[in-house]
Amino acid sequence: MYGFLCLRQLLPLKHRRTHLGFLQKNGFFIAKSFTSVGSLSESNQKPEEEEKLSFAVSYLVNSCGLSTKSAILASQSHRVLFQSPERPDSVLNLFKENGFSNAQISKIVRIHPLILLSDPEKTLLPKIELLRSIGVSSSELITILSSNPLLFKSNLKKRLIPCYDFLKSVLLVDEKVLKTFKRSPRSFLCDETNTMAPNIALLRQLGAPPSTISLLVINFPSEAFIKHTKFVEAVHQVKEMGFDPMKTVFVLAIRVLLKMSKPKLESRLELYKRWGWSKDMSLAAFKRFPNCMLSSEEKITKTMDFLVNKIGWPSANIAKHPSVISLSLEKRIIPRCYVVQILQAKGLVKNNLAVGTFLLPTERIFLEKFVKRFRDDVPELLNVYQASSFRS
């Protein structure tokens, strides 16, 4: 009953019976112990503020679907206080008119409760219209804003529009800006002056071509717009490793170093060393395919164990085609290796095939080159391939 008693003390005496009777009747207040809001019982708020608080709590529960605890915390922590439903009702109506479900509205309010005090026409609708103007569909807009309601909190003229303008200056067309936004909506919340601009300027200074910069921004915006000091550190490391800024792999390596801590990277290098890769081999593999360092230790161990110990390919051969490490062991590596082993046993392909020649091609090319091509010699080959894929 402690939570109920705390709430009771929030209400002005003359309103307690009316408010509490209404709230109990509608099932809003449940007798629970909310230690995190125990301090409410000691509130020294003025009667007017108490009335606003009690009204806001009941509104958040009744109209927005928040739990009692969430409603109290929102009202107290975020100072969501109001006596009239007019402004919050207009906010909820805007969401409903734009296709948001009750559950999505509740999620938005729970994360950003102060949104209920916004002017829907002046502050919320223009942000929705900005996103629509760059091609965000209604369904995408609802999903993105429900998961990232702080976009509503960000200033339209000082943050959202400058971020959009900067991305447009780098990517040139709205389609690419849209891809970036959908991949990372928070890219519109970045500090354009202190992160976006200096990071891109550094890449340009080093000679990275527009296509390479676009690849980084569109596919990995979280890394592209990370804190500038961290970005500079990663760039310097990549340069010291001998990467060419003119090549795409340069920004891919930057991305890997930004995602991995130094101890984690060292552990990957040590793991590859245990499989026979020298330091030079590991560096060469990293320069060919930086993502080989992002695979988990379990994935690397299982893949290397299968290829080296079960299939018998030299570890050095794999180092020359490190991208195979990222391929699915069950769905791609094992089934294709079974097919190649059968062909080798029958003398139809060379025994010293490099792993990249049959593991890296697309499914269509692999089937054409290693399955359909030998259908007369090994009629059952396709069935073996499909069965091994299924078993894996």
Rank of each mutant, 00 (worst) to 15 (best):
P209V: 06
P263F: 05
S58C: 14
L189W: 01
L171T: 14
K273V: 00
I115V: 15
S267A: 15
L160W: 11
F243D: 06
A345I: 00
S222T: 10
L167C: 05
P185D: 10
V378D: 01
F95R: 06
S388T: 07
E129F: 00
T193P: 00
S106D: 00
E86C: 02
R110C: 07
R183S: 12
L178Q: 07
F286A: 14
K32D: 13
V355C: 09
S33A: 07
V91M: 11
Q386M: 13
K157M: 12
P263G: 03
Q83S: 11
L94P: 11
E129W: 00
E330A: 11
T180D: 05
P245S: 12
S267I: 02
F250V: 02
S278I: 03
R16G: 10
S54M: 08
A319T: 05
P263N: 04
I213K: 08
S267R: 15
G356P: 13
V251Q: 09
D191W: 07
E380P: 06
N383K: 12
G312D: 04
S58L: 08
T123N: 07
I72F: 15
M260Q: 15
L20K: 02
S323H: 11
M304Q: 10
I111L: 12
T195G: 00
T357H: 12
K182W: 01
L94A: 03
Q104W: 08
L257C: 06
I365Y: 00
S389L: 12
S184F: 13
F366W: 02
N98W: 10
S187D: 10
L348D: 05
A316I: 11
R375Q: 15
L66C: 07
G27N: 10
M241K: 14
L5R: 12
N155C: 13
K273R: 10
S169H: 05
P263H: 03
L327N: 00
V232C: 02
K158N: 09
I128R: 07
K331S: 13
L265C: 02
P88G: 13
L60P: 12
L156M: 05
L10F: 02
S282T: 15
F374A: 04
I318D: 06
K227W: 04
I226F: 04
N219P: 00
N148M: 03
A234W: 13
K153Y: 09
A316P: 08
S296T: 15
E50F: 03
L343R: 04
L203V: 04
F220N: 15
A319E: 00
I108C: 02
E86M: 03
N102M: 11
T123E: 14
F220R: 15
E223D: 11
R288S: 13
S389I: 02
R373C: 09
R336A: 01
S267F: 02
V355H: 05
I161S: 05
D377P: 01
E330M: 01
M246Y: 07
S392V: 03
